[in-house]
Amino acid sequence: MNTVQAIIIGIHICSLLFLAVYLKLLFNYERKYKMTESRFTLLFGFINISNIAFAYILTIGLFAITTIFLLPYF
């Protein structure tokens, strides 16, 4: 593993740690102060916070995996 690969893996570890901490705090807050949602309060009438969290995890995860797996080809 060269320096560039190490740096990029380090960046992704920081990114994933941030994601984990952020989502943990977010769901703690959501669980503590739960509101009754309806189609009038959801984003575009159907997107709730869990959908956004799922998309967040998916995007960060996919980006990390793609970059790390593509690294040996550069």
Binding site: I8, I11, S15, F18, L26, I52, Y56, I60, T67
Partner: peptide, 18 residues
């Protein structure tokens, strides 16, 4: 990689903020 990671986080944090 740093810039893209920052933009992805920024985008989703903005959505959560909403």
């Amino acid at each position: 990689v740093i810039c893209i990671t920052y933009f992805i986080h920024r985008f989703f944090i903005r959505l959560v903020t909403q």
